[in-house]
Amino acid sequence: MELKVGGQGPDDYEMDRERLYLVGSQCSACQAVFYPQQQVCARCGSREAEKIRLGPQGTLYTWSRVHQSTPEFQTPYVLTYVDFPQNVRVLVPLVDEVSPVVGMEVELVWAPGPRLMEDGTLVNLIHVRPVNR
């Protein structure tokens, strides 16, 4: 059974020369950037927007290692907010076995977890990992 996870659909990312980008939207009127794509601008109300690539690198703004969660997740796992140079912040899990540090440069990558399928296997989700690993 396919599990639908928001922000991880075919319109939400692009691969280009083995690098992974998120695809957000940029308001055509005021340039505000949103991820996932948003039809109406939250800042100015304009309904004109264009797609914009986010990443592939960003800066780790904050993090937490989550030890207790809802049953759909395998704990522990690390969540981070990543600031992208396109002026937008996105929640992204960090790959396993990495010690998070605020300010660390990270890049987007596909990796399993922390979400579980009904059969107990891990879902492949967009993560970040440290650059130059």
């Binding site: 928001g6 989550v66 969540l79 899990p93 605020v102 922390p114 989700l125």
Partner: peptide, 19 residues
């Protein structure tokens, strides 16, 4: 969509605490 990738209320505040 953030809940779908593992955001819980404690983790929202934990990340604020880190900052």
């Amino acid at each position: 969509i953030e809940a779908q990738i593992g955001l819980t209320m404690p983790s929202v505040y934990a990340m604020r605490a880190r900052r």
